[in-house]
Design a protein around this nucleic acid. Structure first.
Lengths: 102, 102
DNA sequence: GCACTAAGGGTTACTTAGTGG
DNA sequence: CCACTAAGTAACCCTTAGTGC
């Protein structure tokens, strides 16, 4: 439904978590973790940024990943997140080199 | 204060908008555009994702840019947003090549 | 154990009205 | 015109309680 729903579902399943379990690992009150995570994943409610950051940390992804509307940008962030400092610079430099509007 | 505050202030000033003007261009009710945009930029309130997307569109940035915690990732998205399809693939491929955890 | 939902209370954002540079 | 704020209302999220697979 929403961008967040889509990314959350993909990333959660890839990591092998249930909705409830992911919520608990992210520090959500166990009693409401299942409901909240389901609401996020179904697009009923939108998590605040700090909640999104906690979820992202558990899944080893940058929080910005969940706000990427197109898949290509999402994948870029996913990979970029794992790189060493030196490798990151290489990627940024290439993007800078190719860019013409910033 | 917050990540959103920081990115918003930077991007708005770079584009030469006032807080109110940016809000109006983004489709916020003119009567409350000044207060809302100021609250976002001072970290008093956090905009919803759809508002953030509208602001991002005016500033020619991806919405995910405003959720990047580190500057390097933010800059990457800023440049990446302007690239052609072919150039984007080059950048993604480099990131994939260097990645070892995804 | 898993995904999912309705409903109400509590928290937050949005609006209004206004200050001062 | 600009940045910014307090206070009240409106809107939303979070919690509870529960269903069904």
């Amino acid at each position: 439904m929403t961008t967040i729903s889509k990314r959350l579902k993909e990333a959660r399943k890839a990591a092998g978590y249930s909705q409830e379990r992911l919520g608990i690992e992210a520090g959500i009150e166990p009693a409401s973790a299942s409901a909240r995570m389901n609401q996020y994943e179904k697009g009923v409610h939108e998590p605040g940024v700090s909640t999104m950051q906690q979820i992202a940390a558990v899944l080893n992804l940058p929080a910005a990943y969940f706000y990427c509307e197109d898949d290509e940008t999402a994948h870029l962030l996913q990979h970029f997140h794992c790189l060493t400092k030196a490798d990151r610079k290489q990627v940024v430099n290439l993007a800078k080199l190719l860019a013409f509007c910033g």
